[in-house]
Amino acid sequence: MTTTDTTVPSWEAHSSISAANVPTTSSFNSFGCGLKSSITSAMALVALGFSSVAVEAPTNRLVEAKRYAQNESSDSLAKFASYQVDDEYSVSGYAYKYPVVTTFLEEIAPILKAAFGAALMELALWTSPVDEETHLYLTIHSGIQEEDVLADKEMALFDEIEENSLLRKGLAHVVIAIR
């Protein structure tokens, strides 16, 4: 990736943000690792006639590096991030860049399984269009409707995290979202 040209006019930079939001359904693959997602986004921008500067602007890139864990696979959250792919914005690439993320996923998998059973899990990278920071978001689709029950489980989860230094370190890169 080349450095973004900061001389790009503001209107064009803004346009690139909108263009980056072109649906990138093709970025999903069977392994959900977001392989080629950056290429897809770039192609979408090119198709819309944006300049190469806009193509290479990494702002507001939603990388749909998703993989769903159902049933027994919630034991293997870390495996989501273990695939070695070339896309630097993939979940695996992110975990490769920050080994503490893989450790975090390995550590938290049994805790989540105990707390939420076979709940659907989702891993996705999100690069903020505001500050351009990228984090890995672990969303737990708990299916719990009662807000109080969900809040209690959430607090219990963070109590466990507080007792585990590996999990605490992981939170520098991973955001947990419980729905």
Binding site: N21, N60, L62, W126, S128, V130, F158, A172, V175, A177
Partner: peptide, 27 residues
């Protein structure tokens, strides 16, 4: 808040992403 209260820090990060998606990812 990551140093002070990780629960709050995590919630803020989650809310921040939701807000950015709501305002920027209109698709």
């Amino acid at each position: 808040y990551r140093r002070k209260d990780r629960y709050v820090s995590n919630k803020l990060a989650d809310l921040k992403k939701q807000r950015e998606m709501a305002d920027y990812v209109l698709t």
